[in-house]
């Protein structure tokens, strides 16, 4: 019984300092808030009865979805709910009334994505997923106004572990789904991604074609295997944490996450992918230990203080 209890604690329930989770909250909710604000000016046209697809036909078109906007569709009511959502995001970001704010923010996202799901692409899926996961976690216990008021409280280790599992699942699932010849035979997948006029930032096919044999081809292979192996990395990282981070157990975070950072920065520079890159990189903060998060926060706040003092 005692060993089961200890295992349960190591894997899911042991308490830890809330700084790392608070840092994830700030980064992810900042991205969610920015993404939400890009709807401003088109809220009624997207989600109210001003949309060309509205009323009973909207419900018929998307029968498997739940949304407040299926039932409240007056344009000004929809705009008001959106405005409440913006306020909820700001409160969630600064960590004031965090639990209530996160629930309201989640209801607004679910309602937007449910009312008009075809306005959201595959990269947008991650917004809804991260919003839901963070809403279910005690994210206001660290780096928040709530914590400043009531004092920081520990959070269970499962919060960061669940975020790691989410990121690992995302990469490995997509790695296994990449079964076509551009990934496994010609190794031209990156080339074709970079030259797609639907989302390319640069019209430079001859340049990318020149890079194909020496640069894009090997990177295509590395990206594929990095994605496929990411879940194994998450498992090894979790095992290392459960064992108490022994010295002999090599820390794979820097090569794995370092490559991920370079890849997503590259994607962000080369392609339009909505909010995917900043969101997934915000999720990487879940791999920081609370001590590392504290050091990072201390470094950033120290730098800000020095700047404001001089």
């Amino acid at each position: 019984m005692g060993s089961l209890d200890r295992l349960l604690g190591r894997i899911w329930l042991d308490p830890e300092d809330p700084t790392a989770l608070g840092l994830v909250r700030i980064a992810v909710v900042a991205v969610l808030t920015a993404s939400l604000l890009t709807h401003t000016g088109a809220v009624a046209e997207y989600f109210s009865n001003l949309a060309p697809l509205q009323g009973e036909w909207a419900r018929e078109a998307f029968p498997s979805r739940a949304s407040v906007f299926f039932w409240i569709d007056d344009p000004w009511a929809v705009r008001a709910i959106f405005a409440v959502g913006v306020v909820a995001h700001v409160l969630w970001l600064v960590g004031r009334f965090t639990t209530a704010a996160s629930i309201v923010a989640w209801i607004v996202w679910m309602s937007m994505a449910g009312r008009s799901p075809l306005l959201y692409s595959l990269p947008d899926q991650l917004q809804m997923v991260m919003c839901t996961l963070l809403m279910l976690m005690p994210t206001g216990r660290g780096l928040s106004l709530d914590a400043r008021r009531h004092g920081p409280k520990p959070v269970p280790v499962w919060c960061r572990r669940i975020l790691m599992i989410q990121i690992g699942t995302l990469y490995t699932a997509t790695g296994f789904l990449k079964s076509g010849p551009t990934w496994h035979r010609d190794f031209t997948a990156l080339y074709f991604t970079l030259v797609n006029p639907y989302n390319r930032h640069f019209d430079a096919a001859p340049f990318f074609a020149a890079l194909q044999p020496w640069v894009l081809r090997p990177i295509t292979i590395v990206v594929l295997w990095w994605e496929i192996l990411f879940a194994a990395f998450v498992l090894l990282h979790a095992l290392r944490s459960v064992l108490g981070r022994p010295r002999w157990f090599v820390d794979l975070r820097w090569p794995m996450l370092g490559f991920g950072v370079m890849m997503h920065v590259g994607i962000q520079i080369a392609l339009y992918v909505a909010w995917f890159s900043p969101l997934v990189l915000s999720g990487y903060l879940a791999f920081l230990t609370p001590d590392e998060a504290k050091r990072l926060v201390a470094r950033v706040t120290g730098r800000i203080r020095r700047r404001t003092a001089s």
Partner: peptide
């Protein structure tokens, strides 16, 4: 999960990226 607009299908650039627009 789809009821609350959560999708866990992560088929980015899969099985191949677009080769035509």
């Amino acid at each position: 999960l789809l009821q609350i607009s959560i999708k866990q299908t992560w088929g980015m650039y899969a099985p191949d990226p677009q080769r035509a627009q």
